[in-house]
Nucleic acid binder design. Structure first.
Lengths: 227, 227, 227, 227
DNA sequence: TATGAATGAGTATTCATTCAT
DNA sequence: GATGAATGAATACTCATTCAT
């Protein structure tokens, strides 16, 4: 399978319905959900592509033929699972920022709440997000929508930070934007690594999760206020 | 191959000589180097395991039998390549910190130099580091020495930062240590993600590499001085 | 599919209506014609069995279910197409011989006209005739009616030749019959091979079609007159 | 399998050693022979491609991997079997014509002996020749060498006939050549059809084999002498 | 009648590992 | 020690046929 995707140009879109073959209803829809759920479980247990369609067939109680009725290939089934996950993640990210925009009154408060909230959102989706990133490395059909998702998430977060520009240290608007972006990247990167989204090698420090979230917010606040 | 390792317990050590079968000399040593070099190239070109031993045999001008004479399995050959890389990386990390310890006089100066230097060290090793982290996810024989490596790197870096405690914001020694650790993690995580060590999805921002290094240092200095 | 027929005894009849399931009328008849036409096209484009019922369904605008309503199996659909072709061919052969019987006055004239006419009839039906012969090789349900068709064609042709017995070389009636039969076989075999009904390997000689027809007639006339 | 060859351009040569992977010796050679023999038997029993490599493996007592060690694909294995057959056939055709050239003194004698001898040569190779022609229809790698073989066979035969030009009817050298070629084609086509090389539909006449050979020769002699 | 979604058996090919030489 | 030929398990995908609606 990998051979047919890795290192080769592919030209198909993503997004739940794009990789699936037709709008589903009733029994068909149930069967579609079962095969996606089964594939999702197997991906988490064995790795992105290290499961067989026979396993999906058995676990999801769908025939192999049915899978090919909905998805053009095993690759597209994997992309379908990923697309679903990205959709759900995007929804939660947006909701988080919306909620905090209304609730938070000052920069420090926002940052603490944001780091806390975003950390939990990422944690919830961490396992599949790992697989998504791993696959994005060689599958453009996952990489492209992944980038768009990331850009939008960055924009939402920095916009919300910039609502508190009055508390920022300098008064150069361009520098403010840079600071907000840097903060977002530092937050995402650090949480992601800690959640093993990139690797697990150095994950198991004594340094704990709660403390990390607190220090991340603290660092960003100090940074944004500086100069 | 993957099936035999992924998600399954394995019980073999790592570190260049541990995965290889015997102390090598002369012609044997040259042949060992060729097979490792060939495997390394193929891993970078095709992915961690997406190469065949036949390819290693051809490119490295060693017989397949020879490979099995040095390595118990293809898995161990991959681990051998990784072990070599981690050794080289550790050496450079240590040298960097040693050099800066002697040269830098104040905290800000140290942090800017450290981020700059570490970024380049990581950049140099990024491609194979990616493969290492990817594999660590499912191969304990890579994950375990990887953790130890990471812990030592963290200790070296935080010790160097703590040499400038007098410039730190608070005066609680415990908090100082936390700040140093947090700084190290933020630096490593952010550089790593940017180098695509974890994923490539969000890599392609306009946000550039030079700026990122500067802001990272700036952020850490602000953070360490705060309180 | 092949596996279920090739080299295995089958027990179903042939002849347009025998493989189809029921006398058709109106809309049903139109649908039956569409599926046969679609199957015919696909057989010519892809080979005897190298098309799928899904393709027939799409091209002929008939549901797969409809096909099974008319034909017991894909094999029978193929046989239906072949049966239709053999019917049409038989009609033309008969017409040709009838016409020549009335028109030709001497042996040479008849032979030249017959070879010319028969060559064109065969040429017209060559593509599907190829498929028929190919399939007859392993499908008794095509071979049996095919033999009957061939026997009748032989009888028609030899009877017509024997109408000119007075011009034959010998005067042994038994030998005359043998000569006529041999002539028919030589004509059919040579035309058929040239039309690639049997193979295409040696087809592409410079030796051309018009000349071949002429020489065939010349040869037969010389043969029939000899002794 | 068919899909990968039929209707697609291919660009590989033929001839026993061209489809096989390396000059064989000893044990390897024995194994190569066993797999070709097994494939040959299965092709004759089931059809050109209607056998599985598992069957070849079992019957020939060779592992599937071994087959792929010698042949790039199942297609090439089939071509290997065919190549061997064409070689053997060519050898016998040449020997036959050589022998008759020396022995026969007059045209009639040559033609009777040639038809008799060629009929037996073709009969001996008929089953595999059928498969060859069938495959040539869609596989250029079989068609191309097949055409060359046919052209050479035609040349050998017509040259031998032309050694008796003095007995020919007309005295136009060009016409003599045409007559010789026509005779060869009629002989080959008629024998081939009778041997079911093209089809079997009309094969089972009462008209028998011995008589056919005699009449064929008789017809050609009458034709060559005519004018 | 008519439909077309669901089924699942069947198969070429790859490649890590072994072992006779 | 070295070699590389031999092994055979493992797996995505197709498509004739059925049958619930």
């Amino acid at each position: 399978m990998s051979g047919s995707v890795k290192k080769k140009a592919v030209a198909k879109p993503l997004a739940v319905a794009d990789v699936s073959r037709k709008p589903q209803q009733g029994r068909s829809l149930a069967s579609l959900k079962r095969m996606i759920a089964a594939a999702r479980e197997l991906m988490l247990e064995l790795g992105n592509e290290d499961f067989t369609l026979a396993e999906v067939s058995e676990r999801g109680q769908v025939s192999i033929g049915s899978i090919y009725l909905r998805f053009e290939s095993k690759d597209n089934l994997v992309r379908g699972v990923i697309a679903e996950e990205l959709d759900a993640l995007a929804k939660e990210e947006t909701e988080l920022v919306q909620r905090l925009k209304d609730d938070s009154t000052n920069l420090a408060n926002f940052m603490y709440e944001y780091v806390e909230g975003y950390a939990e959102v990422l944690r919830k989706h961490a396992p599949l997000l790992r697989l998504t990133m791993e696959r994005a490395e060689y599958d453009p059909l996952v990489a492209t929508p992944g980038k768009q998702h990331a850009l939008r998430a960055e924009k939402d977060a920095t916009d919300a930070m910039l609502a508190h520009t009055d508390e920022f240290g300098g008064d150069d608007p361009a520098d403010n934007k840079i600071k907000a972006q840097s903060s977002y990247h530092v937050i995402f990167s650090t949480l992601a690594r800690r959640l093993s989204l990139g690797s697990s090698g150095e994950t198991v420090h004594a340094y704990d999760w709660q403390r990390m979230k607190r220090e991340l917010a603290r660092m960003c606040v100090a940074y944004l206020r500086s100069d």
